[in-house]
Write a protein that binds this DNA or RNA. Structure first.
Ligand SMILES: [Mn+2]
Ligand SMILES: [Mn+2]
Ligand SMILES: [Mn+2]
Ligand SMILES: [Mn+2]
Lengths: 220, 220
DNA sequence: TAATTTTTTTAGATTTACCTAAAAATAAAA
DNA sequence: TTTTATTTTTAGGTAAATCTAAAAAAATTA
């Protein structure tokens, strides 16, 4: 069994692994809000326990064991987020912090019954896929809104930023999961994007457009 | 805010306070599965933080602040137990361990919405009262089954032992919350008790009879 | 009341997860 | 290819929660 802290490291390393093959000490330190020296200590411990492969000065990669542990935590995090939104009427911008705590509750039985209670959901309130009890999940194919061209359209199916501020902003703009959008223009001046959503024309900043994930349905 | 460990101490001290006015170091150590020396350390810390009044060699009592904190943890524990039984179909003997973890989740909003989701239950799966958000709850007036006399009857409304083994045993005997029972005889030999439940005559040991709580409805 | 037992506290260590400051390795720039 | 900058590690230390062994206080028994 892993400690609360070890679980947090594993989860962070897992997420960072999606960006770079081997994960660097400083990247972990930044995510986990700690100092690089502390990360080095913990990495050694995780390596001793067989959760990561570690080469000094080179960074870490998860072992099979570490990956499974990490995916299990992600599964729990996302299931709890669904619970909070679907059953307790939390908004999508309120759930992440609480799920950060709930994801560490140990009981196997709890999570399996929760999954069933929620109807075996396939994705969480932010569009992220929920691994099943064997750790399997659909590798979803998203494209960033910022990478679409004028005339392209699609459905909002995810976000790559989970901060409350960002999610509240999207909510206010009416840009929630499942909404159909189409790119109508890109401003030369600041790179902001004009989009059509529910017959309304709105303008969103480059920064916002970067973090909205679209599953496209054609037009190029 | 208190740590996970501090919360456990407060809760234990609260429960022990129902038995004795001032709570002894050894009693806490036994409950919390630790050594008296460790308890002394923690007690000093809780006293410094204003959660308990402490006189060396005499024991501790909760302050107003400590009592409120403890009741809040008890509230969370019992609400989670209701959730597990009512929503996730756990049996009453399976929930305690998981609730021991869930009771430490910090979010105020979570617990208020959970309470609402469960329909503001007044008691948990073991018949224990659930404090409301202001810490108020009905001081239930129970009598131990062992203290009833032949001919007395009542309703099972609680248990004073939460171990899985005990609860499973009651389940098997058909002695669950809400059942009507009546004492028909007390065996001289071993003090075991004959009771009538759902038109069946069964015999239970003194030990079992000690931990069943009855709200009586007459006959003496 | 004195002797003995029980309870509680102190003293000094240990483990986990941190930290700062300084050294070592690697990467980037000149 | 040096020099400089960045990244990472080591060394040594702190705070929280625990422990064992021994001392001190309180309660019990003789
Ligand atoms: Mn989240
Ligand atoms: Mn999410
Ligand atoms: Mn319980
Ligand atoms: Mn209970």
């Amino acid at each position: 069994m892993q400690s609360f802290t070890e679980e947090n490291y594993l989860k962070i390393i897992y997420h960072l692994s999606e960006l770079t093959n081997t994960v660097q000490t400083n990247a972990i330190a930044e995510q986990i809000q700690t100092k690089p020296a502390s990360v080095t200590d913990m990495i050694k411990k995780l390596a001793d326990k067989g959760f990561v492969d570690y080469i000094k000065y080179q960074g870490v990669t998860l072992t099979e064991r570490g990956r499974n542990a990490a995916i299990n935590i992600v599964r729990k995090h996302r299931l709890w987020e669904v619970f909070l939104v679907d059953k307790l009427n939390f908004r999508w911008d309120e759930v992440h912090e609480v799920a950060e705590e709930l994801e560490h509750i140990k009981s196997e039985a709890l999570i399996e019954r929760l999954d069933e209670f929620l109807g075996f959901p396939k994705s969480d309130p932010h569009g992220d896929p929920i691994p099943d009890k064997n750790g399997r999940f659909a590798k979803t194919q998203f494209i960033k809104l910022i990478d679409l061209k004028i005339g392209d359209g699609g459905t909002i199916t995810g976000v790559s930023q989970h901060s409350s501020a960002f999610l509240k902003h999207l909510e206010k703009l009416g840009l929630t999961l499942g909404k159909q959008i189409q790119i109508t223009d890109v401003t030369d001046f600041d790179g902001s994007v004009e989009i059509l959503v529910e017959n309304k024309q709105i303008n969103i900043s480059r920064e916002v457009a970067k973090h909205i994930l679209i599953s496209t349905n054609g037009k190029n």
